[in-house]
Design a protein around this nucleic acid. Sequence first.
DNA 1: ATAAATACCAAGTAAAATACTTGGTAATTG
DNA 2: CAATTACCAAGTATTTTACTTGGTATTTAT
Lengths: 159, 159
Amino acid sequence: MKLTTKGRYAVTAMMDLALHETDKRRVALKSIADHQEISVAYLEQIFAKLKANGLVRGTRGPNGGYRLSKPARNISIFEIIDAVDEPIDVTRCHGRKDCQDGEVCLTHELWTDLSHQISSFLDQLKLGDIVKTPRVRAVAERQSMRCAETKHTQRVSFS
Amino acid sequence: MKLTTKGRYAVTAMMDLALHETDKRRVALKSIADHQEISVAYLEQIFAKLKANGLVRGTRGPNGGYRLSKPARNISIFEIIDAVDEPIDVTRCHGRKDCQDGEVCLTHELWTDLSHQISSFLDQLKLGDIVKTPRVRAVAERQSMRCAETKHTQRVSFS
DNA sequence: ATAAATACCAAGTAAAATACTTGGTAATTG
DNA sequence: CAATTACCAAGTATTTTACTTGGTATTTAT
């Protein structure tokens, strides 16, 4: 379980989708790219993985874009990060059980315990819950207002 | 809170010190280097940081080496890792509080919560407790036996 | 006094991982 | 049929990590 900026991009992007879940419209990567100020091409890589892990579905063409492939309340933060970030090998002995003699194994349980701790924490956190919090809601409102105001300027700050 | 191999080296090295705490003798980096199969020079860098953070004390000259600067039961795994690994900026907005408008801050609390979760887990784990576990004790026994047997061969496998 | 063993110090380099970019093709809609 | 989107396969640039190199300073034993 690694946590890189890629994983963070993925989580905020998924929140973006979750916030528009009620709409019929798909969310285009272009729009997310503007929100997060990263390139569409980079987002494509992230969404390729999200899609491969069955978290989103994409449709092409004008008015195309992505939507969540299941309800936000059933998607955990763990799933999202796990989909895009490579798993880190916390134990250094590559998870083999028969490492009773190697140096690593003194601390083997230490690292696996930690790893489980992190995973279960993030697995309890559902996208739906986070999107429901007042802060996020408020920010989402502000965002859509701002989008309307500055539609053509292309420079919108997500939050 | 980052976790790299450097941090893992640091933890096992500290365990090495803790296991020899009862002795009057210091533990030389040479000995730890043999156990962990890494260079003394690299260990020096690690111990420089451990020392700077007040976790160990070193003495020079023959029969010199390092010892813990406080009882193992008062040293947490968090302290050790925190001393040697650079802190990771989980929030991406560099921890500033006034980021109500930035993109990052939707997930700000998410990452800080996670970070606290990890830190407190590792802070509860004390070096002394870990060293007391039967598995570690057994390994330590085996190691010292092996050390006695092969004292001059220089090639001892820690565990 | 000197040699050996250690810690201590400041750079550098090599390798790996991360964060992107570039240059395309395929499907869908107005 | 032109625009807009997803989809795809590489490549490159940057940063981080993991080390190495080449020294100096102390202490101990002989």
